[in-house]
Simulated scan of single mutants.
Amino acid sequence: MKNIQYTGQTLALLILLALKLSLVHAQTTWPEAPVMVNAKITSSGQLEITPSSTSSPKDFDFLAGKWAMHNKRLKTRLNNCTEWVEYESTDENFGTILNGLGNMDIFRTAFNQAGGMSYEGLTLRLFNPQTRLWSLYWVDSNSGTMDPPVIGSFEGNIGKFFCKDIFNGKPILVVFVWDKTDKDNPVWSQAFSPDNGVTWEWNLTNTSHRIK
Results as ranks from 00 to 15, higher is better:
M1N: 09
N3I: 11
Q5S: 13
Q5N: 07
Q5H: 05
Y6Q: 15
G8P: 03
A12G: 14
I15S: 10
L16Y: 05
L17H: 08
L21A: 13
S22I: 04
S22L: 13
L23I: 11
V24S: 10
A26P: 02
A26V: 12
T28W: 08
T28R: 06
T29C: 02
E32P: 09
E32F: 14
P34F: 08
P34R: 13
V35I: 12
V37Y: 00
V37K: 05
I41R: 07
G45T: 12
Q46N: 02
L47T: 02
L47W: 05
E48T: 14
P51Q: 11
P51D: 13
S53K: 12
S53V: 05
T54G: 14
D59N: 13
F60W: 12
F62Y: 07
L63T: 06
A64E: 10
A64G: 06
G65H: 04
K66H: 06
W67D: 12
A68L: 01
A68P: 01
A68G: 00
M69H: 00
N71T: 06
K72W: 13
R73S: 00
R73H: 05
R73N: 04
L74D: 03
T76Q: 07
T76D: 08
R77A: 11
N79V: 09
N79C: 09
C81R: 14
T82E: 12
W84M: 09
V85Q: 06
E86R: 07
Y87D: 13
S89Y: 11
D91I: 01
D91L: 08
E92F: 10
N93Y: 03
I97S: 12
L98Y: 08
G100H: 13
G102P: 14
G102N: 15
G102I: 11
M104L: 15
M104R: 10
D105I: 05
I106F: 08
I106W: 06
F107E: 03
N112D: 15
Q113M: 04
M117S: 15
M117W: 15
Y119P: 11
E120A: 09
E120H: 04
L122R: 10
L122M: 14
T123F: 09
L124F: 01
F127L: 08
Q130K: 13
Q130P: 00
Q130Y: 14
W134E: 04
Y137M: 10
Y137D: 00
D140Q: 09
S141H: 14
S141Y: 12
N142M: 09
G144F: 06
T145Q: 05
T145A: 05
M146K: 02
P149K: 04
P149C: 01
I151E: 00
I151L: 02
G152D: 04
G152T: 08
F154Q: 04
F154V: 06
N157P: 07
I158P: 03
I158R: 01
G159V: 03
G159N: 04
K164I: 00
I166V: 15
I166C: 08
F167H: 10
F167S: 06
G169F: 07
G169M: 00
V174H: 08
F176M: 12
V177N: 07
V177E: 11
D182M: 00
D184K: 13
P186S: 08
V187I: 14
W188L: 10
A191C: 15
D195L: 03
N196Y: 08
G197C: 03
G197F: 02
V198F: 03
E201W: 00
L204E: 03
T207K: 14
S208H: 04
H209F: 14
